[in-house]
Nucleic acid binder design. Structure first.
Length: 432
RNA sequence: GUGAAAGUAGCUCAGUUGGUUAGAGCACCAGAUUGUGGAUCUGGGGGUCGGGGGUUCGAGUCCCCUCUUUCACCCCA
């Protein structure tokens, strides 16, 4: 009986695994050089941990299970709650600010589609304990530091940035009540994805007053931070968050990534816990889903029973990113090759043990080395060496018996040289 | 969860209006007179045609169900 892989999961064959590792190694390398430390938590948590916050979207997508003790558990659909839990547990002893990153394996019971699977990897970086927008800028820089390093340019991707706090202040100055905000966010979040008339229709369901609606539409069509002031008179609160957003863009300029970033008032984000600056990273052609996103979540730790500590962070998934890199031809360079430094061949059966012995000595010295499992003809063994992309092939034959010499063949040029066995071994052990 | 399209060797696909033992290229394995690989040539393995049921003398081909993938909702990594 053949059993297929589970819906929405992936098998990683060696070539796929090589690419996955290449992506994840890049995430880790860039995180570390930006000053973040790695952490991880369990792959399942109490179900209620994910129900507390973040809203229905994620809860509906949970894989949940019950253990034998009747505990209600869930496979983690995101790692931020775990982060909040871990930080809260040791909040008094952790040096501030806390700059942590993780590459968790996550699970969401969504209907799979291109760039959207049920099991995936996500790069998360977070800064906890800094309320200045410097932290937001640093987090955005870190994401771009990676994306830029692997070859993406401002022609390929864009970070669309806005602020929930600002949007709240602006909407309130239009006359929207605080209780209406959350529902309205969900509608505004769709503005970039819906045709104009469909969006207006949805808006009309939320906001009955036509004047208010007109003002909201006007506000949502501004293309720069400066235009906001032209559109309506700013309250003190609004002015403050507009200024904050301006400072963020200034900082991004100082950090040298301004050309990747753009203000977009339509970025609201679906998750309920965002409080301030929010952003999403898209491919410039906007043909794919969001590559990543994040923002400020100043109330989350408190909601998990900790102290009120500001926090900001983002996540980038591996699925959409891999598709984008594939399209840009940046993934093909990562074709994995099983490259051997040495392949040890023997001309005659009597040298087989010697070949194995030499192979193991090379390996112990740190070289990648292989030998033929069968006592096949030399031609066969060379073919094997070639299959395994060996750089050099060592041939053990009569030269060893007669003069204690090995034949070393360069597989690229075909050139061969004779080297004394003991000298070769000494050289190999020392140079590695 | 709702709607739509697709599914034939490991991969990319062909398969005539239903008609014998289902094909190609690539990949894989093995040979080509035994101390030299990449090329070429020859041969081989591998498919219950996604799975199940039905119509028919006969189904890869038509119908139904189901699974998976892709697309649109939904939502975001």
């Amino acid at each position: 009986m053949k059993i297929p892989p589970v819906k929405g999961t992936r098998d990683f064959y060696p070539p796929d695994m090589a690419r996955r590792n290449w992506i994840i190694d890049g995430w880790k390398r860039v995180s570390l050089r930006n000053g973040f430390e790695e952490y991880d938590g369990p792959i399942f948590e109490y179900l209620k941990m994910f129900q507390i916050k973040s809203g229905d979207e994620i809860v509906e997508q949970l894989f949940s299970l019950q253990d034998r003790g009747g505990r209600e558990l869930a496979l983690r659909p995101e790692i931020t709650p775990t982060l909040a839990r871990m930080v809260n547990q040791q909040i008094n002893s952790l040096p501030k600010p806390i700059k942590w990153f993780s590459v968790p394996r996550l699970f969401r019971a969504e209907r799979p589609q291109r760039g959207r699977l049920r099991e995936f990897f996500q790069w998360n970086i977070d800064i906890i304990g800094v309320d200045e927008s410097t932290a937001d800028a640093e987090v955005i820089f870190c994401a771009l530091d990676y994306l830029r390093e692997i070859g993406l340019t401002p022609d390929d991707i864009v970070v669309k940035i806005s602020s929930r706090e600002m949007l709240a202040a602006l909407l309130q100055s239009i006359g929207i009540g605080e209780s209406e905000l959350e529902g309205l966010y969900l509608v505004l979040d769709k503005r970039n994805r819906l045709p104009a008339d469909a969006f207006e229709e949805m808006l009309a369901e939320r906001v009955a007053d036509e004047d208010k609606r007109k003002k909201i539409l006007e506000l949502m069509s501004v293309e720069s931070i400066g235009q906001i002031g032209d559109c309506l008179e700013l309250t003190d609160a609004a002015k403050e968050s507009v200024d904050e957003l301006g400072r963020l863009f200034e900082l991004l300029g100082v950090m040298g990534v301004a050309d990747f970033c753009r203000f977009d008032i339509g970025i609201v984000r679906g998750l309920a816990y965002y409080t301030g600056i929010v952003y999403e990273i898209y491919d410039k052609a906007s043909e794919l889903r969001a590559i990543g996103g994040g923002g400020r979540y100043d109330d989350l730790l408190k909601q998990f029973g900790g102290p009120a500590i500001p926090a900001t962070g983002f996540g980038i998934g591996d699925c959409v990113l891999a598709i984008l890199l594939e399209e840009k031809g940046l993934l093909q360079k990562q074709l994995p090759v099983r490259k051997l430094d040495y392949f040890v061949a023997c001309v005659d059966k009597v040298h087989r043990e010697g070949a194995i012995k030499l192979t193991m000595k090379l390996r112990s010295a740190g070289w990648t080395a292989g030998f033929s499992y069968k006592a096949a003809k030399l031609g066969k063994q060379l073919k094997k060496a070639d299959n395994q992309s060996a750089k050099k092939c060592i041939i053990i034959g009569r030269e060893l018996v007669e003069k204690n010499e090995l034949v070393i063949k360069d597989m690229a040029t075909g050139e061969q040289e004779l080297v004394d066995y003991d000298k070769f071994l000494t050289k190999c052990t020392e140079s590695k």
